[in-house]
Design a protein around this nucleic acid. Structure first.
Lengths: 339, 339
DNA sequence: CTGAAAGCGCTAACAA
DNA sequence: TTGTTAGCGCTTTCAG
């Protein structure tokens, strides 16, 4: 492999000078710079990032941590889309990506590995856990960090979908098509995504002057089985003609439960769910969903981190919230125009 | 951060001795080893992989390269499952993962970055392109490599699903349920996965004494639109009561075309497709598929690479082929028992 | 403006 | 069995 030494020899200068050329140090003679540069170009030389980061300099490597809570990832392309968005931005900016997929069983070990890693310049953590110990550890060690999802650390940058407005939008849609008795199945309450989607549901009810009834709120866990179970609970406990489900996966279970109860969708119960995963695009009955821009979230997260690194300003956190989109798939009901 | 120097000082030995303890060099006194080890444990010290790899030693970092040909990855959890399998094995063996998702537009640039990377000990490439230039470059530079998918380089290790047998199995199933006029839609012929699935289809026909008719072979491209188009082509050109589609995504398009032609599935045309992506599990009509063990492929690929690295034997390639599974989802037809 | 020298954390060859 | 020394490729003082 070509090293700085060879370039120096060929150019007839010292290694320091070559280093200066590489790093755009202004203190280099015009002619010297050109000569060195031409040899660098000719040999297609690039400095060894490993040596650079050993110096404590920038390695141009950033980390991506995705906790694999439950096995959602098996069916949910969240990870693919996110990684794609991040990777794409990294490529554009000449960064490489270090990936950790954390399995619950190995969480502690993985976290300690990540914290001990000396290579990365910064890290993106896709965590929606409230008070994630990894985030706290990273903050303590002053690793530049961008979180995917919301957090309560004011010093941590974050990029998140607008769960609250998205959920309120779902309610608005159900009201628009004439539904008044709305129920919801939530995600876990120890995640911001779970909490915020419930907050949005309630806000949507308020905006439409509908009552918030505890009996119409069932607490799920973002899994298909959870959706099935909690729908049964709702059916026993209350009546409803509109159902907002906090994730597509749960809605698959919910639909099963509704159909078993002999209810037609959307005639008897209209449904909106959050996420818009690809499987929901082909689902029967047609699903109306709230789509989050996962790819975009990824690329913005990466860009945010890279900006912080390059500006050397990791102290000023940025908190970005991206809008969601209502995806209406053909329903058999005519929307009722309302105020 | 803790360094080997501090450990040495605290243990009252030289850095070399600490290094020997870390690397399990037998030439260390029992008592010395214990003492050093206890300090290492106490301080939760881990050697800096960056320094290690600068030495040309082992960094315990391996690369994972996934080319994002077309946008299949958006809907196909192939990537998630594969990454999961690989990541899991890495964690178990104390390796970390460097990820490159290669977008077609940036392929050359990304390849050159990968090739120039000095950090990784070895690399896993999920490429099904025939004569992939990246693979050739890596071989030239003697980077230890395991390919996901088949290849024609005898010196490269590979892990692949058994596309040939899987496809023959699909044919056998169609024959078992009484179909005799079988057609297929293939993948691209510049990929082994495309070729092998066609080979398997033909082999299946031969095994069942059915003729191989060119008019019943339509060349697709692993996309939904391709499946739709090629089914139209088949419908115009020939008749068939069984269709083997080389990927689930294509089968979604194929079903659309069949339904538009007024054909019932599986009554008029029975269908089997390769992959068994999650979306196909919920599809209507129920899909019968050939499932490839993607998660397992990933973890075996990682294990193969790590074994090669740790045994220092990167010269002896391993070629592993993993069996596929026929997933039958309720069809309305009774299987006919056959020899 | 340029070069010599030191050092990042670690391992490996050589001495003791 | 252990310590000393040199060096991986690079950047960064410090002299010149």
């Amino acid at each position: 492999m070509t090293t700085i030494k060879e370039i120096a020899k060929l150019a007839g200068v010292s290694r320091s000078t070559v280093s200066r050329v590489i790093n755009n140090d202004p203190n280099v003679n015009h002619r010297t710079r050109e000569k060195v540069q031409s040899i660098i170009d000719e040999l297609d030389y690039q400095p060894n990032p490993v040596a650079r980061s050993l110096m404590g300099g920038r390695s141009r490597v950033i980390g991506l941590v995705i906790p694999m809570v439950f096995s959602n990832l098996f069916t949910d392309p969240f990870f693919s889309l996110l990684a794609q968005g991040i990777s794409s931005t990294c490529t554009t900016n000449n960064y490489t990506l270090m990936l950790w997929l954390i399995e619950p069983d190995y969480e502690k070990r993985a976290n300690s590995n990540i914290l001990r890693n000396r290579l990365i310049d910064g890290i993106i953590v896709a965590s929606n856990m409230i008070d994630d110990p990894l985030i706290e550890g990273l903050v303590t060690r002053k690793v530049p960090i961008v979180q995917i999802g919301r957090n309560n650390c004011p010093e941590v940058s974050s990029v998140d979908a607008d769960n609250i407005h998205g959920s309120a939008m779902a309610v608005r849609h159900l009201v628009n098509i004439g539904r008044k008795k709305l129920a919801t199945i939530t995600g876990q309450m120890d995640r911001y995504s779970g909490r915020d989607r419930l907050v949005g549901f309630k806000r949507g009810l308020q905006e439409n002057d509908l009552p918030i009834l505890d009996e119409r709120i069932a607490f799920g866990d973002f899994t298909e089985d959870g959706g099935y179970l909690q729908t049964k609970v709702l059916l026993q406990r209350t009546t409803f003609d509109g159902l907002y489900v906090a994730s597509d996966m749960m809605s698959f279970g919910a639909i099963r439960a509704l159909q078993e109860a002999g209810l037609r969708i959307p005639d008897d119960v209209a449904l909106v769910s959050f996420d818009d995963i690809p499987a929901s695009a082909r689902y029967q009955p047609p699903l109306t969903t709230i789509r989050q821009p996962i790819h975009q979230i990824g690329s913005i997260a990466a860009q945010t981190l890279i900006d912080q690194l390059e500006s050397n300003d990791t102290a000023t956190p940025r908190r970005i919230i991206l809008p969601t989109e209502l995806i209406i798939r053909k329903t058999t009901l005519q929307p009722v125009l309302s105020g």
